[in-house]
């Protein structure tokens, strides 16, 4: 019976104002709310809806990250995933998209899902690569930036948002899907489900268990905050506005 694999990433919450570490070596995460990457949460929601419509039997949620990522996996279990796998990485280790894709491939080979869904990108590094790389390594179709997914037999019809409008794809399953913002609105976690989630299986494995060697191919030199926006000035009328623009050589 069909399984769905959902990949989620633990990131600094979308609503947190990002601050840098004082030495510019990265983003400060101390005392900062960490949540499931919003696009991945949409992916999970979609997978749960597919299962609840009878299109799949089991939803497996996987993540790569430090031990604390268990919190986000528990949340995913409380949302309704059936079981979870954490591929534990060292705290602070950078997992590049290719390593993530190889790791997910190893999980795919182990779990043999019909459908893999993940966010189109993670809001921390905005790479937008993992889904595509996974499809290529797996040698299966990909439908990225999905705004609707319809399953029929062993095919999926996917609408995706592109610059020129909406594009409709049909792909053969198994396939990889990445989600866009408009696909759905994730549910709230209900209390009875939180209690149930505590009893659901959460397995921890290592890269070695999966036969993956993490590689770091990109070196970050430093981070800096965007320039602070200059304070605006109020002008009385159009004449003053034009005058001010002229003075700055903008018109």
């Amino acid at each position: 019976m069909a399984k769905i694999l959902v990949a989620i990433k633990r990131v600094v919450d979308y609503n947190v104002r990002i601050r840098l570490k004082p030495d510019g070596s990265g983003v400060a995460t101390e005392g900062v709310k960490l949540s499931i990457n919003p696009f991945d949460e949409i992916a999970l929601e979609e997978a749960l809806r597919m299962r609840d419509r009878g299109a799949a039997e089991e939803v497996i949620v996987a993540s790569i990250g430090p031990a604390e990522t268990q919190q986000q996996l528990r949340t995913a279990l409380a949302m309704g995933a059936d079981r979870a796998v954490l591929v534990q990485a060292d705290a602070g280790a950078v997992v590049e998209p290719l390593t993530a894709a190889r790791t997910l491939l190893a999980l795919v080979e182990r779990e043999k899902p019909q459908i893999v869904i993940l966010g189109k990108q993670a809001i921390d590094d905005d790479n937008n690569q993992t889904g595509q790389m996974l499809a290529a390594l797996w040698d299966r179709p990909q439908a990225t930036f999905a705004s609707t997914i319809e399953l029929k037999d062993d095919k999926a019809t996917v609408r995706r948002e592109v610059d020129t409008g909406l594009e409709t794809l049909e792909v053969d399953l198994p396939a990889v899907f990445t989600t866009d913002l408009r696909l759905n609105e994730p549910r709230y976690v209900k209390l009875p489900d939180i209690m149930k989630a505590k009893k659901k299986p959460l397995e921890t494995v290592t890269f070695t268990d999966l036969g993956v060697t993490p590689k770091q191919q990109v070196e970050v030199s430093h981070y800096e905050p965007p320039p602070v926006r200059q304070k605006g000035v109020m002008v009385k009328d159009v004449a003053e506005l034009v005058g001010a623009l002229k003075k700055r050589g903008l018109v």
Binding site: Y14, P38, E41, Y188, V189, L191, M195
Partner: peptide, 20 residues
């Protein structure tokens, strides 16, 4: 919070992120 709600509320939803 979850434990007290489980004991005293009929039902509850918990925000999983700041947007919620």
């Amino acid at each position: 919070l979850e434990e007290i709600l489980a004991a005293h509320a009929t039902d509850a939803v918990v925000a999983t992120n700041l947007q919620q």
